[in-house]
Every structure is written in structure tokens, then in C-alpha cells.
């Protein structure tokens, strides 16, 4: 038997190939686009911002695509005969699968942030960089609060990402397990699978949307509103900030409990019903 560490290492090695490949292609494309616009219109002009806009769009689309790919990769591994022969307990297998998805997604997101910063550099330094002294003075007292909000949102995003993987694994695998083993055949079986998939989607979406909705309301009502404005004259800020309320941690707890419930349900379905594909 192998343990969690070895399983995680093997899965990470396989999954990170897609991460590096996607990042490489994306980075080359984005840098070429930015360079083209920067050279054609000059670093300081408004038109140079078109390149940044395109880069931001590409990064956004790639991040969405990558999230879908992470979920698909987790599903493929759960159903793969090659992987399912590996002598590891179901709990370690599933945890390694979910966490490697999370880690590769975090690497992907951080690398994209870095790419975007690199793209921004010539634009910022090409224009006249002006942050007025009044903005700096009003910005100072809110730094610790901004850090707390940043950490909270990052942590919430991580937990939500795990819940997203468990959510999709659970509904797709439950539908195929029930579809495979219900006493139904052919079209009836396919129809039953679709109905089960939709029912689970509705039920579990309700759970996710309740927590996420509450957090979004909290963020909009309690006042984290800090904006960066970048134009050809440089970087400007505007903000209203009321600090991180205690209730935000209760929402975090609710999200963690929700992830635990999804994981436990997925573990049960995986262990008892998910067959490896031939």
C-alpha cells in the first residue's frame, strides 16, 4: 500500500504537466499581444491599454477554462483503470485527487497574476506615475484591514474551489453510478441519468448558493470597497473600508462544513459505486 504523500506526488506530477503546458502557451501569447500593442502605440498612450485589456480577457478565460479542466481531470482520474489499480485507500486517493487539483489551480492563478504584472509594468512606468500624497495618507490606516480582507477572500476562494471540485465529482459520479445500476436499460437509463443529474444539481446548488450569496451580501453591505484605478497617468486609489466583521468567519465555517459534507458524500459514492472505466 502507498500513502497519501506518494499518491499526491504521483497525481501532482501528472496533473502539473497540463498546468505548465497551458501556462507556457498562454504566457507566450499574452506577451506577444502586449508587445505588439506597446510597440505600435507606445507604452504611455491610452491605446496601449488595448493590449492589457486583451491580456486580461485571455487570463480570465484561461482561468475559467483551467478550473473546468481541473474538475475534468479529477473526474478522469477517479474513473481511470490505470489509477484505480494503485494500492491506496479510497480516502487517500480522493483527498490527493482534490488537493492536487487545488494546488495546480493555485499555481496557475499565481502564475497568471505574475504574467499580468509583467504585462502592466511597461504601461505603468511608461506613463507618468502619480500617486498623490493625500491618497497615500488616507490609504495608510486601512492597510491592516485590507490585508485581513485579502487573506479572508483568498481563504474563502480556496475552500470554495475545493467545494467546487467535490460538488461536480459528486453530481457527475452519482448520476453515472445510479444510471449504471438502476434496473433500467438504453434510453430509459440515459433519461434517468439526466434527471438524477439535474435533481442533484438543483439540490446541491441550493446549498452552495445559500452560503456564497450570504458572503457576497456581507461583502457588499459591510464595506470592503477598495478600488485601484490605472490609466496612462499612473495608479490611483479610492476606498471605503469598515473592517472584517465577525460574521464573516461564521460564513467561512459554514462553507467548511459544506465542503466536509460534500467530501463525505463523494467518498461514499466513490468507494461504493464508482467503477473504473474499461
Amino acid at each position: 500500500m502507498i500513502g497519501f504523500k506518494q499518491t499526491f506526488a504521483a497525481m501532482f506530477k501528472e496533473k502539473s504537466r497540463t498546468t505548465w503546458l497551458s501556462l507556457g502557451i498562454e504566457a507566450v501569447f499574452i506577451l506577444l499581444v502586449s508587445l505588439y500593442f506597446d510597440i505600435r502605440y507606445g507604452f504611455g498612450s491610452d491605446s496601449a491599454g488595448v493590449g492589457i485589456g486583451i491580456s486580461a480577457m485571455v487570463i480570465f478565460c484561461m482561468c475559467i477554462w483551467y478550473q473546468i479542466d481541473v474538475i475534468m481531470a479529477a473526474y478522469r482520474i477517479n474513473r481511470s483503470q490505470t489509477w484505480r489499480q494503485v494500492p491506496v485507500t479510497a480516502g487517500n486517493f480522493l483527498t490527493a485527487n482534490v488537493l492536487t487539483g487545488l494546488v495546480t489551480a493555485v499555481i496557475f492563478a499565481l502564475a497568471n497574476l505574475l504574467i499580468f504584472v509583467i504585462v502592466l509594468l511597461p504601461f505603468i512606468f511608461g506613463g507618468e506615475m502619480r500617486i498623490d500624497s493625500q491618497a497615500v495618507a488616507t490609504f495608510q490606516p486601512y492597510v491592516s484591514s485590507i490585508i485581513s480582507w485579502g487573506l479572508y477572500m483568498a481563504l474563502f476562494a480556496l475552500v470554495s474551489f475545493i467545494s467546487g471540485i467535490c460538488f461536480w465529482l459528486l453530481i457527475t459520479e452519482s448520476a453515472s453510478v445510479l444510471g449504471d445500476f438502476l434496473p433500467l436499460k438504453g434510453r430509459t437509463s440515459k433519461f434517468a441519468k439526466a434527471v438524477i443529474l439535474l435533481a442533484l444539481l438543483a439540490l446541491l446548488s441550493w446549498g452552495s448558493s445559500s452560503i456564497l450569496g450570504a458572503v457576497i451580501r456581507m461583502v457588499s453591505n459591510f464595506g470592503f470597497d477598495f478600488n485601484f484605478v490605472i490609466d496612462n497617468t499612473g495608479l490611483h486609489t479610492s476606498h471605503t473600508d469598515l473592517g472584517l466583521p465577525v460574521i464573516s468567519w461564521l460564513y467561512m465555517l459554514a462553507q467548511i462544513v459544506y465542503v466536509a459534507v460534500l467530501w463525505a458524500a463523494e467518498y461514499f459514492v466513490f468507494k461504493k459505486g464508482v467503477e473504473a472505466k474499461k
Binding site: R76, Q81, T82, Q85, K277
Partner: peptide
């Protein structure tokens, strides 16, 4: 089911690669 896998070597189509 999980523990008995350690004793088994089975042919596989290598479709994961």
C-alpha cells in the same frame, strides 16, 4: 477492496497516458 490491490498486478490499457 483497497488493501487487496497491493497483491495484484493486472494488465491495463494505459489509457491514462
Amino acid at each position: 477492496e483497497d488493501r487487496r490491490k497491493q497483491y495484484i498486478a493486472m494488465t491495463d490499457s494505459l489509457s491514462a497516458f
